[in-house]
């Protein structure tokens, strides 16, 4: 494999991403949903801050308040990641794509790298915009960029949403079906994580789920009685992502198109 091959394959992937309308819908929804939740919650927190008692003020987390809304918006980013992979199979373009880029390693690497870069760019815009919007709404209770943990949360948030999107791409390459992949990831992110983390017995295990573990980076203090902190949580998410990519690559390499 030469660098030129890989560059051309990435140009092909980028072209496929930008010639699909669903890309713009999903990335647009990622921004819109995140902002639509961040702005009212910032406004509400600002309005009710005066009613909080001392203990509540002590745990008040202007960083986490600003970023927790992306956890819903990122579902649109996850759909983007899934579709990047599965539309090849559902539309049948996988055959012309693999005829053009027959080396499966080059094909899979160019697809995931290009998809990840788009996810990274979208995450950067959305995380910063969401954080900024919340801080504006929080008014005098807002944090400054120079405050402790703020840059860590912003940088971590960008990495978190990007990694979940990449994780979804790996899983999609194994399952090859949009419905199946989204049908597996949405309940996981929306319900399973929430339910399992509320059940005392399994809470210890549930904290290692990809979205729960990675999400710790969004908050000033670790959430719940977890043994993970922001960084170790992110490391757990990285491990999940690497595993999903390895499984995806194995599937792309082994299976007939």
């Amino acid at each position: 494999m030469t660098v030129a091959d890989f560059g051309a394959a990435c140009a092909f992937e980028w072209h496929k991403i930008r010639t699909l309308r669903s890309t713009f819908w999903n990335l647009g929804a990622f921004l819109a949903v995140s902002l639509a939740l961040a702005i009212p919650s910032g406004w509400y927190l600002h309005k009710t801050y005066a009613e909080l008692d001392a203990a509540e003020r002590a745990v008040f987390d202007p960083i986490g308040s600003g970023l927790s809304s992306i956890r819903l918006g990122l579902l649109a980013l996850v759909i983007f990641g899934v579709l990047t992979v599965t539309t090849e199979y559902t539309s049948g373009t996988i055959r012309s794509s693999l005829a053009a880029v027959p080396r499966r390693a080059v094909f899979f690497a160019s697809k995931t790298v290009t998809g990840s870069l788009v996810a990274l760019a979208a995450s950067t815009v959305v995380v910063i915009a969401t954080f900024a919007a919340t801080q504006v709404m929080l008014g005098e209770h807002a944090v400054a960029l120079s405050d402790d943990g703020v840059l860590r949360a912003i940088g971590g948030g960008i990495v978190y949403t990007t990694l979940l999107c990449v994780f979804a791409m790996g899983l999609a390459a194994v399952l090859r079906s949009s419905a199946l992949t989204i049908g597996l990831l949405f309940p996981l992110f929306f319900m399973v994580s929430t339910i399992l983390t509320s059940i005392p017995g399994v809470r210890k295990a549930a904290q290692f789920l990809p979205d729960v573990a990675g999400g710790q980076i969004l908050y000033r203090e670790p959430q719940g009685d977890t043994i993970l902190n922001g960084w170790t949580g992110l490391a757990v998410l990285v491990a999940w992502t690497v595993a999903a990519l390895a499984a995806g690559y194995y599937a792309v390499r082994r299976r007939d198109a």
């Binding site: 051309a8 140009a11 072209h15 010639t19 309308r21 539309t87 539309s91 373009t93 996988i94 053009a100």
Partner: peptide, 19 residues
């Protein structure tokens, strides 16, 4: 084997880029 949402030209443009 063409994505229904892509234009005829876009389908070929992508393949041209790849090689």
């Amino acid at each position: 084997g063409v994505h229904s949402g892509r234009t005829v030209r876009a389908h070929l443009d992508g393949l041209a880029l790849s090689n």
